Simulated scan of single mutants.
Amino acid sequence: MSETGRTNIVVMWTVGPDEVAEGDRIFASHAEFMTGHPREGEEALLSYEISKGPELSDPVDPNSSPTGNTIFVLHEIYQGPAGVPEHWRLAIQDWVDLPAFMEWSKRNKVSTLHDGVVVQSLW
């Protein structure tokens, strides 16, 4: 099913080797928290993924050498724009690791797309 027109959140964290274990712990907690999101209606969470892999010295050359850092990528797709503020409302209300997540994020390089719109989706 195409997700074109849906609302998404995409976040990338680039972390040093000493931050990877905390990232793993936080995202395990986050995945558990995300199971409480609505699955129907305008606020519905349609898709949730966390990816992780090595940062490369040349980001557009898959054969370049790794830097030693790790990149975590979060990708959430919601039925519509109401899903993003509902996500944050639930996080503030229910996610016990939100303070740890915010502190970990401050210590690392983060790039964020909040309230994005999917403009191309094949399936």
Rank of each mutant, 00 (worst) to 15 (best):
M1Q: 08
E3R: 14
T4N: 10
G5R: 11
N8V: 07
I9T: 12
I9S: 06
V10A: 10
V10D: 00
V11P: 00
V11Q: 10
V11M: 11
V11S: 11
G16E: 12
P17W: 03
P17T: 06
P17M: 06
D18I: 01
E19M: 08
G23I: 00
D24S: 04
R25G: 04
R25T: 13
I26N: 04
I26Q: 00
F27G: 00
S29Y: 02
H30W: 13
F33H: 05
F33Q: 04
T35R: 15
T35D: 09
R39T: 14
A44L: 05
A44M: 04
L45K: 03
L45V: 05
L45N: 02
I50D: 00
S51M: 11
K52Q: 14
G53V: 03
G53T: 04
E55A: 15
L56Q: 08
S57A: 15
D58C: 07
D61H: 12
N63D: 10
S64F: 06
S64T: 05
P66T: 09
P66Q: 10
T67Q: 09
G68D: 03
N69Q: 12
I71W: 00
V73T: 14
V73H: 08
H75F: 11
E76L: 15
E76Q: 12
I77W: 00
Y78Q: 06
G80W: 02
G80Y: 05
A82I: 02
A82S: 14
V84L: 08
E86V: 07
W88F: 15
L90D: 06
L90R: 15
L90A: 15
I92V: 09
D94G: 07
D94E: 13
W95S: 03
V96L: 08
L98H: 02
L98M: 12
F101E: 05
E103G: 01
E103R: 06
W104E: 03
R107C: 03
R107P: 00
R107Y: 04
N108P: 03
L113I: 15
H114N: 14
D115T: 06
D115G: 14
D115M: 12
V117T: 15
V118S: 07
L122R: 10
L122M: 05
